[in-house]
Amino acid sequence: MESNWHRNLLEHRSGLFAALTTVVISIGGLVEIAPMFSVPLDTTGITVPTPLEVAGRDIYVREGCYNCHSQMIRPMRAETVRYGEWSRANEYAYDRPFQLGSRRIGPDLMRVGGKYPDAWHYEHMRDPRSTSPGSIMPPYSWLLEDKVDVADIQASVNALRTLGHPYPADLDVGASMREQATAITGRLAESKITVDPDREIVAVIAYLQNLGVDGKKLYATAGSQ
């Protein structure tokens, strides 16, 4: 067999072949992803989610809301008129995991914060068709019963702090949650809805009502909306 160095190199040396494959499949990812770490993100005006909002977000992720709802408003008139100011990168700074979504079976939620009263969300979660006739969203009535566990959220806050979310060292997770939750249940009571502050629905409302609020303040311009 006449010896061909290139033949030996590629076809007969599986280790080398594997190494070459590794290099070839790594280039694209490196070139695209690495620069993301060197782009400075201006987080001025972007608030860190409170413990109650973290709890609500965990529930949002748990229920797989991202399977039907996006959090990404594209810079097009049809989108900004329907949903509000288009999404900027720094607004997602504290999104772990990101929840941009890929299919709008329901509407975008990027700027749902402040769009409806707390009571609307309560009723909508209990029975989506009571507030949105024709909706195909499943009811989430268990959120009205199930309780948020403070120790569980403490663990989440600790992990997020390690990852760089700037929570103050002396943050009292339980007290912070109670305070924010009581404010929400107070508003709900005004709408004749009685619910304990430790229910999951309260955390979900806290999360939803905070969605996109910072960005709206930063980026809302006259004429949009």
């Binding site: 770490f37 990168a89 772990r96 995991p97 990101f98």
Partner: peptide, 9 residues
């Protein structure tokens, strides 16, 4: 929680 956040994630 992923080590990446937002658009990087």
């Amino acid at each position: 929680y992923p080590v990446y956040s937002g658009m990087t994630d």
